[in-house]
Amino acid sequence: MSPALQNPHLALLGAEPRLVPAAALAVKLAAAIQIWSMRRRTRHQLRDLDDHLLNDIGVTRREAFGESRRAFWRG
């Protein structure tokens, strides 16, 4: 066995059980909520940009408004 695998801290990590299914689901749900929140926030910020800023990024007012109305769960 290599010295790295004999490290007691590494042995503890390998011995720990995986997340129970409910906890794994909770982690996935929390990640999804974080992404949805970011999408909602950035889409609303896009909607509120001035015309000259929209022009700088190559987006029309109509495109910005359309994007801001998209559902947060849609990528």
Rank of each mutant, 00 (worst) to 15 (best):
A31C: 07
L54N: 05
S2A: 13
A32K: 14
D51Q: 14
R70G: 02
L12M: 12
L46F: 02
L25A: 13
L13V: 00
R74I: 07
E63A: 06
A71Q: 08
A15K: 15
Q45K: 05
L13C: 01
G58L: 13
R69H: 00
W36R: 09
G75A: 05
G66V: 04
N7M: 01
L25Q: 14
L25M: 09
A26R: 09
L10K: 06
D51C: 04
L12V: 08
R18V: 10
D48H: 06
R18P: 00
L53K: 14
H9G: 08
R39I: 05
A22D: 03
I35M: 09
P3Q: 01
R18H: 04
R43A: 09
L25P: 00
A30T: 12
L54P: 05
L5E: 15
G14W: 08
A24Y: 01
A32P: 05
S2E: 12
Q34T: 15
A32W: 15
L10V: 10
A26C: 05
R41F: 14
R74T: 09
V27G: 01
A64R: 03
A71E: 14
Q6H: 05
Q45R: 13
L54V: 04
V27A: 13
T60S: 15
R69D: 05
A22L: 00
P21V: 07
N55A: 15
Q34W: 04
A15R: 12
H52C: 11
Q6W: 01
L10W: 00
R69S: 08
G66R: 10
E16Q: 12
F65W: 11
L25I: 06
I35K: 13
S68E: 11
L12F: 04
A4W: 13
A26Q: 05
A24F: 00
W73C: 05
R62Q: 13
P21E: 10
S68Y: 12
E63V: 02
P17I: 03
R69L: 10
L19A: 11
S68R: 07
A32D: 12
S2V: 00
A11Q: 15
R70L: 09
L54C: 08
M38G: 06
M38V: 08
P3S: 07
H52G: 05
K28E: 12
L49T: 04
G14M: 06
R47E: 11
V27S: 04
E63Q: 15
H9Y: 11
A30N: 08
A22S: 07
A32V: 11
R18A: 14
D51R: 08
D50R: 07
P17M: 00
R43S: 02
R70E: 10
L46T: 04
H44I: 06
L54R: 06
G14T: 11
D51H: 07
F65M: 06
A26K: 04
L13P: 02
Q45I: 02
F72G: 14
V27K: 15
M1T: 15
Q34F: 10
M38N: 13
G75F: 07
R18F: 02
P3C: 02
T42W: 10
A71D: 10
P21N: 01
M1L: 07
P17T: 04
A22K: 00
L12S: 11
